[in-house]
Lab assay of single mutants.
Amino acid sequence: MSGNGNAAATAEENSPKMRVIRVGTRKSQLARIQTDSVVATLKASYPGLQFEIIAMSTTGDKILDTALSKIGEKSLFTKELEHALEKNEVDLVVHSLKDLPTVLPPGFTIGAICKRENPHDAVVFHPKFVGKTLETLPEKSVVGTSSLRRAAQLQRKFPHLEFRSIRGNLNTRLRKLDEQQEFSAIILATAGLQRMGWHNRVGQILHPEECMYAVGQGALGVEVRAKDQDILDLVGVLHDPETLLRCIAERAFLRHLEGGCSVPVAVHTAMKDGQLYLTGGVWSLDGSDSIQETMQATIHVPAQHEDGPEDDPQLVGITARNIPRGPQLAAQNLGISLANLLLSKGAKNILDVARQLNDAH
């Protein structure tokens, strides 16, 4: 009898209710805020589980004197976190989706994509230029951005401005803007500013005609071990179906173009009346040469937790077992079709030249 009692006690200790789920994140304040929001949602869904947040620095956090596009290494903000995932030191990792490459290392998958916040870019102005827009900034004003995508589009749109690289986390960039006289304004992701509670610093939100956004911008991705079915089931509740389908289309477009950090590629997606609209573009580094096109596809946005595919093969690095396969494939095909259209119009040449120029500098 006593033996059975011990077995029952052991089973209770090993039951999922007692389990601590370890969540990996970057150390920056924004990353911690984003991770806290994901953990809060998981806690609400699984009140019996405990969650421990483990923060670590990544290569991208450490190399702050070089433009991201020049470092010449993929997975700048993800490699150390993936290493911890691989060694079973954490069970899942919360990322900004735009930091996750469209091809993940073997053994990993994006197990959830959370509801997207505003994906557009924002302009934050130096205190002396508050009330201005990019259009009304004085001639030769210097605007800071760490992104080739932003610089290429904005140089084309605002030729009277000069664009220079600015690195560091959000706090560091804002301090550089406010305390030094080098920059009249800087460009940042609206979602990051909003998550930090800095709505009052948003001086201008850039519309798609001015600057399309990065693939996955404004959404959070939760990376897990691809074979860890328990954790895949656990994080599945975080999937937002519309965000998922938009981001599958965007990531398929980028992957098929073979774009990345070192080339200016941008997108804009919208879901309306059962249609998914995808606009994508590529630019030369100075913005003088560009190709942009829009395509659409009829896609039914499923309700969360309709029964999805059981075999769960990944699409552009994403596993969404609780979302039907048909809409996911339709979104992926839309991204591939748009990429093929741009490639047929000469996108590869623009991107190759951009890559060579970026590598040469």
Rank of each mutant, 00 (worst) to 15 (best):
V20E: 06
I21H: 07
T25H: 11
R26S: 01
K27R: 15
Q29F: 07
Q29M: 13
A31V: 01
A31H: 01
S45R: 11
Y46I: 08
P47I: 04
G48K: 14
G48C: 11
L49A: 14
I53D: 09
M56K: 13
S57N: 05
S57I: 01
G60L: 01
K62G: 15
I63K: 04
D65A: 07
A67R: 14
K70L: 07
L76Y: 07
L81V: 08
L85T: 06
L85D: 01
E86A: 11
E86K: 14
E89A: 10
V90F: 05
D91W: 01
L92Q: 04
V93W: 01
V94M: 01
L100N: 01
P101N: 07
P101D: 01
P105G: 12
F108L: 13
G111W: 01
A112T: 09
R116C: 07
N118A: 14
H120T: 14
A122H: 04
F129C: 07
F129A: 07
K132W: 12
K132S: 12
T133E: 12
V143G: 04
V143R: 01
G144M: 12
S147A: 01
R156G: 08
I166M: 13
G168Y: 01
N169D: 06
N171A: 10
T172R: 10
E179K: 08
T190I: 15
A191H: 01
L193N: 06
L193A: 01
Q194T: 04
R195N: 01
M196S: 05
H199A: 10
R201I: 15
V202R: 09
V202Q: 06
G203A: 13
H207K: 13
H207W: 14
M212E: 05
M212T: 11
E223H: 06
R225K: 04
R225L: 09
D228G: 12
L238G: 01
H239I: 10
E242Y: 01
L244Q: 15
R246M: 09
I248A: 03
F253I: 13
L254F: 01
E258I: 13
G259H: 01
P264S: 15
V265A: 15
A266D: 09
H268Q: 14
M271P: 01
K272Q: 09
Q275H: 14
L276W: 01
L276D: 03
L276A: 04
G281H: 05
G281N: 01
D286Q: 11
D289F: 14
Q292K: 05
E293I: 09
Q296G: 12
A297D: 11
G308C: 10
G308A: 11
L315C: 15
L315Q: 03
G317D: 05
T319V: 01
A320S: 01
L329T: 15
Q332T: 13
G335P: 01
N340Y: 11
S344E: 13
A347Q: 14
K348C: 01
A354S: 04
R355Y: 08
N358T: 15
N358A: 15
